[in-house]
Simulated assay, not measured.
Amino acid sequence: MEHLKPQSPEPLLTLSGVHTHIGQYHILQGVDLTVPRGGMSILLGRNGAGKTTTLRTIMGLWKASAGSIVFDGRDITRMSTPDIARLGIAYVPESMAVFSDLTVRENLYLAARKGALDEARVDWICGFFPALKKFWNYPAGNLSGGQKQMVAIARAIVEPRKLLLVDEPTKGLAPAIVGSLMAAFRELKDTNTTILLVEQNFNFVRTLGDTVGVMDDGRVVHAGSMPALANDEELQQRLLGLSLDSHQ
């Protein structure tokens, strides 16, 4: 008797033929992207390829001019950003967006949907980023760039999320802080949080990534497993013009 393989679960997020215009510029030109449930999906590509625009379009900050975005079985293409966030999607922009005049605690409090902080979850987050407790009552605007990035990520995960969109979290960060981010993302992957990450630190993503999409000129030109790309130098050269092994 033939044994049938179990069908894989439906992906958490699917972009189909997504186009995005910003003013007169046609940035996304038919993006097809599938993000499986669980684990970490990576978006690679040169500057200007459309990676950040893809994240912002998913979040509803920029509206798709064509195509569809389906999250957890629901079409979110025309939904507002607050409604998208309520479905369980959080976005950490590259700009390390924090409320500068508010303390670290107040920044996290504003992100707590229940109007109160889950102290156990805060302790869990601070286990990765001890500086948050050290500067708990300091204005976030007084922190360093790396510390602000910690606050931005902590804000995004202070409540459980289904999907976390993160734009270049390691940019400009010290190696020790990058190590803390790596530990945090590893644990998040074990808590039913799916992560879609835009990143240029190849050593970082090859360690954490499960699947990968490579963008060029507003399209996804390659999709597959991250280990397959990391272990195929010829494919790296063809898609990225460099070897991941040379970027430690």
Score class of each variant (00 low, 15 high):
Leu55Asp: 15
Leu102Trp: 13
Arg155Met: 07
Arg74Phe: 07
Asp32Val: 06
Glu94Arg: 06
Ala230Thr: 00
Val104Trp: 10
Met182Asp: 01
Asp245Pro: 07
Leu13Tyr: 14
Arg105Phe: 13
Ala140Ile: 02
Leu87Ile: 05
Gln7Glu: 13
Phe135Ser: 09
Cys126Ile: 00
Val158His: 00
Phe99Glu: 06
Ala140Glu: 03
Val205His: 13
Ser144Gln: 11
Gly38Tyr: 06
Leu12Val: 14
Ala97Cys: 07
Thr77Arg: 11
Val122Arg: 12
Ala154Val: 00
Arg121Pro: 05
Arg74Pro: 01
Lys51Thr: 08
Val18Gln: 04
Ser16Phe: 07
Ala176Met: 09
Val220His: 06
Pro82Gln: 10
Asp72Asn: 08
Glu119Cys: 05
Met150Glu: 08
Val70Lys: 01
Val158Glu: 00
Ala228Val: 03
Ser68Val: 03
Glu199Asp: 11
Thr81Pro: 12
Met59Glu: 10
Phe185His: 07
Asp75Glu: 13
Asn203Phe: 00
Ser16Lys: 15
Arg121Cys: 07
Leu208Cys: 04
Ser144Lys: 10
Asp232Ile: 07
Asp245Cys: 08
Glu10Ile: 15
Asn137Arg: 04
Gly23Thr: 08
Leu15Met: 12
Leu61Lys: 06
Met79Ser: 05
Phe71Val: 10
Lys133Gln: 11
Ala230His: 00
Pro6Trp: 10
Gln237Ser: 08
Gly179Val: 09
Gly45Trp: 10
Ala97Tyr: 08
Gln200Arg: 11
Leu43Gly: 09
Ala97Asn: 07
Gln248Ile: 06
Lys171Asp: 10
Val178Trp: 07
Arg238Val: 01
Asp210Met: 05
Leu188Arg: 12
Ser100Lys: 01
Asp32Trp: 04
Phe202Val: 13
Ala85Ser: 15
Gly172Ala: 02
Ser246Ile: 14
Val35Ile: 11
Met150Ala: 05
Gly146Phe: 01
Asp216Met: 04
Ala120Pro: 05
Ser100Tyr: 00
Gly39His: 02
Thr211Leu: 04
Lys171Tyr: 09
Arg74Cys: 05
Leu110Ile: 15
Ser225Pro: 03
Leu173Phe: 06
Met226His: 05
Val158Asn: 00
Leu164Val: 05
Gly17His: 11
Tyr109Asp: 01
Thr34Glu: 14
Gly141Met: 13
Leu108Thr: 00
Asp72Trp: 03
Lys5His: 08
His19Ile: 01
Val18Ser: 04
Gly30Glu: 14
Gln24Ser: 12
Gly30Gln: 12
Leu173Asp: 06
Asp232Gln: 09
Glu199Ile: 08
Phe71Asn: 14
Asp101Phe: 15
Ile84Asp: 02
Arg113Asn: 07
Leu28Cys: 07
Val205Gly: 08
Gly67Ala: 02
Lys114Asn: 14
Asp216Leu: 06
Ser100Cys: 01
Leu44Pro: 03
Lys148Asp: 02
Met96Arg: 13
Leu164Tyr: 14
Val214Gln: 14
Leu15Pro: 07
Asp167Pro: 11
Asn231Trp: 08
Pro130Ser: 13
Glu199Leu: 09
Gln147Phe: 09
Met226Gln: 04
Thr54Trp: 08
